[in-house]
């Protein structure tokens, strides 16, 4: 549904996106994560034809997005900051969207307005950041998109509305088979709703996989011994990282989990348990591998 091929983008002479290749399957939710300044917003703006890439192309539903009104009529885009005409009332901006998008659904719009409890007569300039985010989401759902691209959509929303928005996105996919790409710093949220994850760092996609694969490939083992940590375990090639607090050792293991467990069992551990890594931990581990300073990661 979404194919990004060999995309390069420069801003102010600096290469912000470097050979980006992404494939998002129809009816799936793709989460784009990365530290601040990694190129997430630039990538999303290139995907929705705001920025013109210097190289490569964005194909949506088999067609290049560039100046393609037909494809854009089924493309919803929620930006990180909602740019609306401040003097417009909500009803007027809705009228504008209704005129622009041929598949606009009035019933859906009314339903979502009731859900978010927004006042149609209110002017955009009088809305809070959270209300603007709600408005952007409801407008882009009312256009009945085939593809929905969201850049930090829950930023500025309170926890209840955040939950509502995430549920709406999941509902959108299950009810209408919409393809969704979502960028967020809230990895916990992405973990709950995404099928696939892409990690972008310094303009490059450094990891792209399904949540399932990511979690099964990288696991964490918590282990404790009566004595010191045996040398054989310390030097095991499948153990990527060991953090020790007293006699408790936490190990990040990539592949061959069973082999590692067998090795550990040989030394009669007093504690041995396997823990799934959260997306946040995988992200931090992966970014650490890329030489990223953990303290700088805004999560």
């Amino acid at each position: 549904m979404i194919k990004i091929k060999a995309l390069d983008k420069y801003l102010g002479g600096i290469k912000i996106l470097d050979n980006i290749n992404i494939h998002v399957k129809p009816g799936s939710i793709y989460g784009l994560i990365g530290p601040n300044g990694a190129g997430k917003t630039t990538l999303i703006k290139s995907m929705v034809d705001i920025y013109q890439p210097e190289r490569g192309e964005v194909i949506i539903s088999g067609e290049n997005i560039k100046d393609n009104a037909k494809i854009k009529s089924r493309l919803g885009y929620v930006s990180d900051y909602q740019y609306f005409y401040p003097s417009f009332k909500i009803s007027e901006i809705a009228e504008f969207y209704k005129g622009a998008y041929p598949h606009w659904n009035d019933d859906r719009y009314v339903g979502l307005m009731n859900l978010f409890k927004l006042d149609e007569k209110k002017k955009i300039k009088h809305l809070s950041k959270g209300m603007r985010a709600q408005l952007a989401i409801l407008l882009n759902l009312s256009i009945m998109p085939e593809v929905l691209i969201l850049d930090e959509p829950t930023s500025g929303l309170d926890p209840v509305v955040k939950r509502q928005v995430l549920n709406l996105i999941v509902d959108e996919v299950s009810s209408y088979n919409t393809t969704v790409m979502i960028s967020s710093h809230h990895l916990g949220q992405l973990e709950q709703i995404c099928d696939h994850i892409g990690i972008i760092h310094e303009g490059k996609i450094i990891l792209e996989d399904s949540i399932e694969n990511l979690k099964s490939n990288v696991r964490k083992i918590q282990v404790a011994f009566k004595g010191e940590l045996p040398e054989e375990i310390k030097n095991n090639q499948n153990i990527l990282k060991i953090d020790s607090i007293g006699r408790i050792h936490q190990m990040v293991v990539k592949d061959n989990l069973e082999v590692v467990i067998e090795t550990i069992k040989k030394y009669n551990p007093i504690l041995l348990e396997t823990i799934d890594m959260s997306l946040e931990e995988i992200f931090i581990y992966k970014m650490g591998g890329e030489g990223y300073v953990f303290e700088d990661i805004a999560l």
């Binding site: 034809d49 009104a69 885009y77």
Partner: peptide, 10 residues
């Protein structure tokens, strides 16, 4: 707001 217009079907 040009950014919004650019992403819309115009």
């Amino acid at each position: 707001t040009f950014e919004v217009l650019s992403s819309m079907p115009f």
